[in-house]
Write a protein that binds this DNA or RNA. Structure first.
Lengths: 114, 114
DNA sequence: TGCTATACCTAAGATTTGTAGGTATAGCAG
DNA sequence: CTGCTATACCTACAAATCTTAGGTATAGCA
């Protein structure tokens, strides 16, 4: 009933996913991000908290995210949202990722010169 | 005239690319792989030797590749080819990568529930 | 009382990669 | 013949990212 943990494929995509999710929803907290990713991938992809929280802290330290803590139902939530620099960076990284994936596909499909 | 080195996007794709290239060409040597990747991506992607050679050695140690050294034009070349286990592993990793990319796309495009 | 879900966090280690070197031959330009 | 570029291999160290494996705490249900 439990899907296997993520393979170690493609490290480096986590922060891009975080930025993209926050582009779309304006404000999210950590646990919500883990659940959203599970939902969007039908449970096939799971973000571990040991990766997520350090990544969020780094993005905040880099000035791309700001935080606001709220208490909901007796539990603390730390909401993250994009700064102006975060919006810019999100666009840049998505473009970079898109270019990378095109190149990756060019290598894996091996169309030319054959 | 020199393209910037690869961003740190998507670590973990190097060994998959190696396996895929060897699926297609049966036999390649290290330097040839770096040139092939440059060619396939119009110079946009460059595999560094500091990443490539350790990766090749690991794949060989894992029993996925075998080597054969030849001297061509006075220079030694170390040709790599897939073992039987290497062929199997190549197929597995390509399938895993494909699944991962679908999930990644599901997160980045954010279609459902909006 | 205990388990699950919610919600945050960190430390230690593994893995992968980039940077920065090193060695050596061949060939061409000056 | 000297120096530079291309070819062809390699390693060591550091940086970055992620997994594993914990820890803390509240709420709710069995």
């Amino acid at each position: 009933m439990n899907n296997p943990p993520n393979a170690q494929l493609l490290k480096g995509s986590l922060s891009v996913m975080i930025l993209r999710l926050l582009e779309d929803r304006e404000q999210m907290y950590g646990y919500e991000i883990t659940q959203k990713v599970k939902q969007l991938t039908a449970g096939e992809m799971a973000i571990t908290e040991g990766a997520l929280y350090p990544a969020l802290h780094k993005l905040e330290a880099d000035g791309l995210l700001t935080t606001e803590t709220q208490v909901v139902d007796g539990r603390a939530r730390k909401y993250y949202s994009l700064t102006k620099a975060g919006h810019t960076e999100a666009a840049t990284r998505l473009a970079d990722l898109s270019a990378f994936l095109q190149n990756l596909n060019a290598v894996l499909n091996l169309k030319p010169s054959l």
